[in-house]
């Protein structure tokens, strides 16, 4: 099985460790991974701001980069959701691009969905003896339709202590350019989110999207809190026993 890595621009430039963890996990399961260099970004920052033409031009980098791929896997429910939910409309009526978009939609998966639904893996044999809270990303859950795949993966981790917090399903206030354009409201939203997270006494907050985690982490550091944030792939990878050989 061959997987092309769609790192997303956020992970590529700001959180390369997340992609690295993902690659190493996939490698353990005998998946052949490649990284098509032509990819940049799914176009969401422009699309969600109303700049549709600009978004389309950028999105084309993905259609080209992944056209020959068997599977495409991304460490993001939001960017995967962008492809699944909006690319059909974005490229409707454009010869060639329309077909390329459809092909991409049909083979693109968010990391946890790929692990659970394609590879059929829920127990990676990882151990992570910490109190962990899980933040479901809005786009992952509502745009893409991630159900409990991330939680299945978390629940099979040895010695993990799952903690809950109120309003876990509420948006953290990131929303891409929303956090810049409406920074006051966004700031109030992330303040409420971190309050709940801190009160849960979690040591680590896990999610499937670095957009949310970057936002929440930014607030946690601003408040000088101890809670760390980690992508699901990082937690799983860190918890894996060292490989023999």
């Amino acid at each position: 099985m061959k997987v092309s890595l769609f790192t997303t621009c956020l992970v590529d430039s700001l959180f390369p460790n997340v992609a690295e963890a993902m690659v190493k996990i996939l490698d353990r399961y005998g998946v052949e991974v490649d990284f098509p260099h032509g990819q940049t970004c799914c176009g969401q920052p422009a699309f969600n701001s109303g700049y549709v033409d600009e978004a389309r031009e950028v999105a084309k980098t993905l259609l080209d980069a992944f056209d020959q791929s068997e599977y495409v896997v991304a460490p993001s429910g939001s960017c995967t959701g962008m492809i699944h939910h909006y690319y059909a409309d974005l490229f409707a009526g454009l010869p060639d691009w329309e077909d390329k978009a459809e092909r991409l939609i049909n083979k693109t998966y968010e990391f946890s969905q790929f692990m659970v639904n394609v590879l059929g893996v829920t127990d990676l044999g990882a151990r992570f003896p910490h109190r962990v809270a899980y933040h479901p990303s809005c786009h992952g859950a509502r745009l893409l339709g991630i159900k409990n795949e991330p939680e299945q993966l978390l629940d099979h981790i040895q010695d993990i202590q799952r903690v809950n917090f109120p309003h876990a399903h509420d948006c953290c206030g990131f929303g891409g350019t929303f956090a810049i354009k409406m920074s006051d409201i966004s700031g109030a939203m992330v303040e409420e989110k971190t309050k709940h997270v801190v009160e849960s006494e979690a040591e680590v907050l896990v999610s499937t999207d670095m957009g949310c985690l970057m936002n929440i982490d930014g607030r946690l550091r601003y408040e000088n809190q101890k809670v760390q944030v980690k992508h699901l792939a990082e937690v799983l990878y860190e918890g894996l026993p060292a490989e023999k050989e």
Binding site: S13, L14, A179, V190
Partner: peptide, 27 residues
């Protein structure tokens, strides 16, 4: 506006795409 209520992350020294070649050799 962002940093009024939170910190922002920084670009890493090497983006993932620059690490890929070395990483792929370890797989």
């Amino acid at each position: 506006g962002w940093t009024e209520s939170r910190y922002a992350p920084t670009l890493k020294e090497e983006p993932f795409r620059d690490k890929w070649e070395a990483l792929s050799k370890t797989l």
